[in-house]
């Protein structure tokens, strides 16, 4: 498989009154064509900023350095207009909150055909019939009726399907899904994830699934990237990660999830403390203050990203050994 997206020493910071806030600190990441990659971490770990910055959706207060190669083109050298020409056909994004990512005062039909006419140069009629097909594909009942509706007339699950339809309208090569199901019910979440997996297979689309839920990642990705305090701390093929996790942070994250296969009434394991202050850079491992295995070495020196022979990468001096 060939590289589709390649981030090199990718950094994003925001200038704030308290100093520079480092949201993404030197990320190197390669995403192959056709892959489905999950990016996992707590709020504030930098996972959303990473995906948005790659697409060029950062506000003017943000400073981006490093390079992002998409199909061999360095996106950081492109002008705003050239970057824009990649949206829709090259890269597209599904946002977390389907309530606010649709325009409330425009009908579904006009929001859905916009990309088709602007990006693919379709005529009105052609775009309309294509839009109806798309709605049908994301299993919206009565597509013709829905085309005339406003977002406010639809449920959260229906709106998220519309957002998906808009994102895949111009058959993007790379689809970012930023917490696509966090605002939805479990039953609807299952439907939406299944739909994304189907669409990915039939369009040979590459997908980056950003989520805080390791359960969602387990069933729908080939590879997992775990982020903490703006850095990649572990990455491995999904099965390998769950079978043999190396980072104490990943383990703690997994153990804090309540599970159906555990007896009821058990106390949950917690990760004590909070993410470090993103405006400061402390020496040592960023997770050390919350880590149960941390030693003086961890607090003094930042561990490098180590690569195991099977490609499993982790940022820890004392990785967990043995099957979990």
């Amino acid at each position: 498989m060939t590289d589709l997206l390649k981030l090199e020493d990718f950094r994003v910071s925001f200038s704030t009154p308290r100093g520079d806030l480092h949201a993404v600190r030197s990320v190197d990441l390669t995403i192959l064509k056709g892959e489905s990659v999950g990016i996992v971490g707590e709020s504030g770990s930098g996972k959303t900023v990473l995906s948005r910055a790659t697409m060029g959706l950062m506000p003017s207060t943000a400073t981006q350095t490093g390079s992002a190669f998409f199909n061999g083109t360095d996106l950081s050298t492109l002008s705003r207009d050239d970057l824009r020409s990649h949206w829709g056909t090259g890269m597209a994004m599904i946002f977390q909150d389907p309530l606010t990512s649709l325009n409330p005062v425009r009908r579904i039909g006009s929001q859905l055909t916009e990309g088709l006419t602007v990006r693919l140069g379709m005529g009105r009629e052609q775009a309309r019939s294509r839009a109806v097909e798309l709605l049908d594909r994301v299993r919206i009942p009565d597509p013709l009726v829905t085309m005339k509706k406003y977002p406010g007339e639809l449920s959260g699950g229906m709106r998220q399907r519309i957002v998906i339809a808009i994102a895949i309208a111009c058959t993007p090569e790379l689809l970012f899904a930023d917490e696509p199901t966090t605002a939805l019910d479990v039953t609807v979440q299952a439907q939406v994830l299944e739909l994304l997996t189907e669409l990915r297979a039939e369009r040979n689309m590459t997908m980056v699934l950003v989520t805080h839920d390791l359960g969602v990642v387990a069933g729908h990705t080939d590879r997992v990237v775990v982020m903490y305090a703006g850095q990649i701390v572990e990455t491995a093929p999904t099965k390998d990660l769950f079978r043999n996790m190396k980072m104490p942070y990943t383990e703690a994250l997994l153990k804090s999830i309540p599970r159906l296969d555990q007896p009821s009434g058990q106390r949950l394991q917690v990760i004590s403390g909070r993410l470090p202050d993103p405006t400061k850079t402390e020496p040592g491992c960023a997770f050390a203050p919350r880590c149960t295995y941390a030693t003086d070495k961890c607090r003094a020196e930042a561990p490098p990203l180590t690569t195991a022979p099977n490609g499993h990468q982790y940022r820890c001096f004392f990785p967990i050994t043995g099957a979990n």
Binding site: D213, G219, D261
Partner: peptide, 11 residues
């Protein structure tokens, strides 16, 4: 409802 809960185990 129970079937819809994602299980944090890919196997």
């Amino acid at each position: 409802l129970i079937a819809a809960v994602p299980i944090p185990n890919p196997e």
